[in-house]
Amino acid sequence: MMTIEDPMNKKQAIPELKVHHKSAKKQELRSTIFAYVVLIALALLWLYPIMWIVLHSFRVEFRDGILIGTVVSHYIPKGFGLNNFVNLFQNTLFPRWFLNTLFVATVSFILSTIMTLSVAYVMSKIKFRQRKLFLNIAIIVGLFPGFMSMIAIYYILKALGLTETLFALILVYSAGSGLGFYVAKGFFDIIPNSLIESARIDGATNLIIFTKIVLPISKPIIIYTALLAFTGPWMDFIFARVILGETNRHLHTVAVGLYYMVHGSQYADGNQFTMFAAGSLIVAVPIVTLFLMMQRYYIEGVTAGAVKG
């Protein structure tokens, strides 16, 4: 697969290495400086929008006594304050939206995590007849564009009498979550089968093996799965918007509510960007903190998933 030895190089490279030893050091210094310059520039580029949102959320500028809510062209605000946050809590349903999202996220992350790990474990460690078939179906089924079938999902939920409750959203988020078993399966695959077999010889049932032996050593993947399941509802807005309806403002999640602050319909008072920024900050801070705290697990999961394919 990989050719590493090239006889031509071998002959020429050795004297080169010696001759350029000193300048090589200099070159390395130069390339290090270059790397730092690139990194700093890129970091600024990546932090620029984030900083911009933060600054906007605290921006308090007035025009003839009216708080300016739209985007302004100067980067650094001319005045700071908490007016946007106060507005957000007093004049919008944001607190309600926040609790809605928190509720949906909590319940659906518990359900999703249980379901995802269950499926992954079964697909990885339990041998049964139709296993391969299930595996193939699971991979194909997950590919149909989800929101395409939203209209049908809406009516199924309605037939179940659930359309105007947050429970509908919880079902939508967690029902299919088992299909996202792939990364977790990759993790379970690494656990040696011998571990499980020796437990079985000791008389442990499959339930005991799963809960007492496999899960305790699977902390990284549990956290990875839970992290994604918990943050999902905070980020999705298409499903939340269609399933819970645009008119039910008290049933919005934060994403839907905040979206309408920027893109109000033609008949609504749109473009309250500073309030959007304030709301975004309130949503983003816990989520980002959670992410950074769990960074290690996230990276492990992502890398494993990618390499496994």
């Binding site: 809406y154 309605k158 105007e164 309806g245 645009e246 008119t247 039910n248 403002r249 319909s265 008949y267």
Partner: peptide
């Protein structure tokens, strides 16, 4: 009394009268 987008209210309503 709910706030609805009066521009799209008719369409939303026709999509699902019961709701």
């Amino acid at each position: 009394v709910r706030a609805a987008d009066t521009g799209s209210a008719a369409a939303t309503f026709l999509d699902d009268m019961d709701a």
